[in-house]
Amino acid sequence: MMNEIDDKTVKNATAGDKNAFRLIVLHYAQAVNRLAYRYTADASYAEDIAQETFIKAFQAIGRYQAQAKFSTWLLRITTNSAIDYLRKANRQMAQSLDEEGAQREITDHSMDTGDRLDLNRRLSDAMSDLSDVERLAITMKHHQGYSIDETAQVLNIKNNACKQTIFRAVQKLRKQLTTEVSA
């Protein structure tokens, strides 16, 4: 459960208090960057997305309504920023969102080197090896708690395609765990 910043700071920020917004950045920077990293598996992308997220939040904070938790609002901006960023960074992503046929097989990292990589590293590599849409879908569903419908809508794919994408991503990640158990 994320530790929420106090309401007064948010209220002051929505009224244009820049110092209050600074406190928001200090409070949520790590959470935003970590989520961006989950979406991209790339530290430099995550850094850029974190910056974009807070700039967009700054532009839109006057429209924030307190019905939703502030962290929920901010992490939604992070999600949208990550999708936009990946679309810009990789034009093929737009295609892969529509064509679920692009199913890359994940590398079995336990087999490809003499050194046995530790599980953490292999899982990290496995996340990197997921396609952008697989990584986005599994993170949105598993970590952010989006429904299948919402995930499909945000990623602009059909529900069934979304389910299959998540299923495929889970299979690939579990494969690394299974390899560890059997090794």
Partner: peptide, 26 residues
Amino acid sequence: MNAIETLQQKQHDLPEDYGQQLWHQI
């Protein structure tokens, strides 16, 4: 799934003053 989540939480360490750094950047 819990193991995957736990492992992912351990990944991507950020410095403690990351918020401050980000603020200076933006």
